[in-house]
Amino acid sequence: MTDFRSPLAGSPLSVNRLARPLVDRLLAEADALALTVTHDASGACLVDAGIAARGSIEAGLLIGEICMGGLGRVGVRSDGLEGWPTWIEVRSAQPVLACLGSQYAGWSLAASKEETGGKKFFSLGSGPARALAAKEALFGELGYRDQAAAGVLVLEVDRVPPKVVVDKLLRDCGLEPAGLTLILTPTTSLAGTTQVVARVLEVALHKAHELGFALGDIVEGVATAPLPAPSPDGVIAMGRTNDAILYGGRVHLGVRGDDAAARRLAQQLPSRNSRDYGRSFAEIFKEVEYDFYKIDGALFAPAEVWVSNLDSGNTWHAGALNMPLLQGLWLQQA
């Protein structure tokens, strides 16, 4: 019997193998997606999705699916509902593995000025290659580690990672250079903004984990969030992607188990439970002097949540969208 604290123990699924056809498509269609593909001195593949290359929303959708290890679908809806023209839709039949075992940006990658020979480097790695290295404590809780011979990692950066970081990735993932693909997606780009907003379901899974809900009881997930235009200002761009989820994110989780636990999850999950709710993320971030750890953790959650217990057939709803706030931040008067 699988320990409920290790919901992915014994999983036969390989997020890197499942993502590989999507990576191959990204590389094959790079010109059409406005991407640039190069290789570094070691032979690792680098995909510029918004640094010098223009990138695109379509590339961001595909990168979102790559981040989810081929276990999620990311699409776009343009119907003008809720007073905003374009929405990202995400769904997964394996939400814990797709979101926490792959998509979550949990791998801290840093290098000092001395190590880089110039400017210090920092990024959070996200995507399937995290599960090859399994450096985060989260993988011990999940009971999961991938064993694929090739891997892909997404970095939200505005420059190519230095050699010392690439060498670390190869070493920790146990890969040959030809087996590593790095996708670079600054949040100031179309692809970068899109792939971050596509984390709306992952944000809900991470919050459920923080609340102590049994991850093995989460079996389905569907989510939407509005897609803002990227900003050339890095802080504003990051603020917009966060606000899209905190004030415009809708999530429907399918769970099993106890009705009381499902009801409690619905009540506690929405972002409105945070003391920081109601202001733009960029404003909050500046106020705490750009220190994420000073922001109330309860804020990092979708705005509106439904939780359906598939064992009892009961559904609970809590939270609400705050589109007037988003329109005030994003929309200029014609």
Rank of each mutant, 00 (worst) to 15 (best):
V47M: 05
L109N: 12
A59E: 03
S92A: 14
G117S: 08
A134Q: 10
P95E: 04
M68E: 02
I51H: 06
L97H: 03
G106T: 09
A110W: 00
G69T: 04
R130N: 13
G118K: 10
L100N: 00
R130S: 00
G117T: 07
S92I: 01
A53G: 03
S42L: 15
G50F: 02
L35D: 03
S92K: 14
G75S: 05
S42G: 14
V96P: 06
V47Y: 01
H39D: 09
P128N: 07
F122G: 14
Y104K: 09
S92R: 02
I63M: 13
G127N: 02
I51S: 04
T86H: 01
T36K: 13
G101K: 02
I88P: 00
G75D: 11
S126E: 01
V90F: 02
V74W: 06
H39N: 06
F122C: 10
S112F: 11
G127V: 13
L132C: 14
P128E: 11
K113N: 12
C99P: 09
G80V: 10
V37G: 13
W87L: 05
V90C: 14
A34C: 11
A131P: 09
A44G: 08
W84V: 06
K120R: 14
G118W: 04
G55L: 06
Q94P: 00
L81G: 11
V74R: 02
R77A: 07
T86Q: 01
A134Y: 05
L124K: 10
E58G: 03
A111Y: 05
I57W: 09
P128C: 02
V37N: 12
A59C: 06
G64K: 02
G118N: 13
V74F: 09
G50Y: 02
T116W: 05
P85G: 03
R130W: 02
V47T: 00
Q94W: 00
I88Y: 00
E89N: 01
S123V: 12
D48F: 06
F121V: 06
A134S: 15
A93V: 10
A105E: 12
A105L: 14
W107L: 13
K113E: 15
I63R: 08
W107Q: 11
W107S: 11
K135D: 15
S92F: 13
A129L: 13
P95R: 12
E65V: 07
L100Q: 01
L71T: 03
P85W: 07
D79A: 08
R77H: 04
